[in-house]
Amino acid sequence: MGDYYRSEDLGKFAEIGRDAPELAEKFFGWYESVFAEGALSAREKALIALAVAHSEQCPYCIDAYTRSCLEQGSNPAQMTEAVHVAAAIKGGAALVHGVQMRNTTDKLSM
């Protein structure tokens, strides 16, 4: 399992269409549209993707969107803040469940 994620495998992503070409075509077409300039800039979308990539902990996405952010003109300070946003939401999501813990504790306690 040591080499489960290999960088060069990202380049094979399109091969996912081998056994379901229509689904792959729809996915990649939609994906391209999502990242096009729109109400949000391509640079903003790349930063969001970088943050989500960290929250999802997908090595392929982290590689791809680190490069993408740099190629959209973002700098390491902006990218690091984006990762902190992901970490804050991820951490906050865990911590806010403490309310459930308290609710249950209160119910069970005298």
Binding site: A42, R43, L70, E71, G73
Partner: peptide
């Protein structure tokens, strides 16, 4: 680019 990547869209980075 300061590294091994391609430049951003010219209009976007010009604004920055």
């Amino acid at each position: 680019p300061v590294g091994a990547f391609l430049p951003p869209r010219q209009e976007a980075i010009e604004r920055d």
